[in-house]
Simulated assay, not measured.
Amino acid sequence: MVTTADFLNWLGGLQPGVSSFLGSLTGALGGLIAVLIGALFNAALNRRRDDRLRKTDATAVALALQAELFTLRETFRRNTESASDQAVGGRHFIVTTISQSDLIFFRLGERITLIKSEALKDVVSAYLAIDNYFQVISIISGGDVRLAYGGRAYFHLSPGQVRLYAEATKSMQQFFETALNALKRQQ
């Protein structure tokens, strides 16, 4: 077995250039190992920070969508109640559409992918239902569409059409409820 004293004697017996080379090689190797350890540690810190930021961003997106879907659900609930009251009274009813440009969902872009896929399916279904809402109301009203300020459309519904509208808006509420529950489960 080689002892430290034997190693130092061997090293002292070498030519000066060789021992200098071995010292430089040892120092460079130690420096390389230190740099690699530092890089790996830095990468781990960056990954943790990125994960934390991604989770915070996902929470913000989910909360924004929850707030929007809650508002839409309540709007459709009030419209259903109001339309039902109008239908019972035999009165006409005016319905406005929801403009896609007003919705947060369509402004999120790729940030929507921060939502987990199980919840995203239900959220997208709710927004597709909103997109189909215009077509459903157009069919119910017989295509009597008028444009209002801001590019929104409104429909004038007769008492018979109001009943169909109330049923359509009631079914819309279920899409919102499902999406809201999915977003709550994500958090």
Results as ranks from 00 to 15, higher is better:
3 T>S: 15
3 T>R: 15
3 T>A: 08
7 F>C: 11
8 L>W: 06
11 L>I: 09
11 L>A: 10
11 L>G: 05
12 G>Q: 12
12 G>Y: 10
13 G>V: 06
14 L>Y: 04
14 L>M: 11
14 L>Q: 08
16 P>I: 08
17 G>D: 10
19 S>E: 04
25 L>W: 13
26 T>M: 15
27 G>H: 02
30 G>V: 10
31 G>W: 08
39 A>N: 13
40 L>D: 10
42 N>R: 09
46 N>P: 01
46 N>M: 06
48 R>P: 01
49 R>G: 00
49 R>I: 10
53 L>W: 11
57 D>V: 07
62 A>F: 05
62 A>V: 07
62 A>D: 06
63 L>A: 12
63 L>W: 11
65 L>N: 02
66 Q>L: 09
72 L>H: 08
73 R>E: 04
79 N>W: 09
85 D>F: 08
86 Q>N: 15
90 G>H: 13
91 R>G: 09
93 F>I: 06
94 I>S: 15
94 I>Q: 15
98 I>A: 05
99 S>A: 12
101 S>M: 10
110 E>Q: 13
110 E>V: 13
111 R>L: 09
115 I>D: 00
117 S>N: 11
119 A>W: 00
123 V>E: 01
124 V>D: 00
125 S>A: 05
126 A>K: 00
127 Y>P: 00
132 N>C: 02
133 Y>Q: 02
135 Q>F: 03
137 I>F: 00
138 S>Y: 04
139 I>M: 09
142 G>Y: 04
149 Y>V: 11
152 R>T: 11
152 R>G: 01
153 A>L: 03
153 A>V: 03
156 H>F: 12
156 H>K: 12
157 L>C: 05
157 L>A: 08
158 S>H: 09
160 G>L: 08
160 G>N: 15
161 Q>D: 06
167 E>N: 12
168 A>P: 01
168 A>S: 14
170 K>G: 03
170 K>L: 03
173 Q>N: 12
174 Q>I: 09
175 F>T: 07
175 F>V: 08
181 N>P: 02
181 N>R: 15
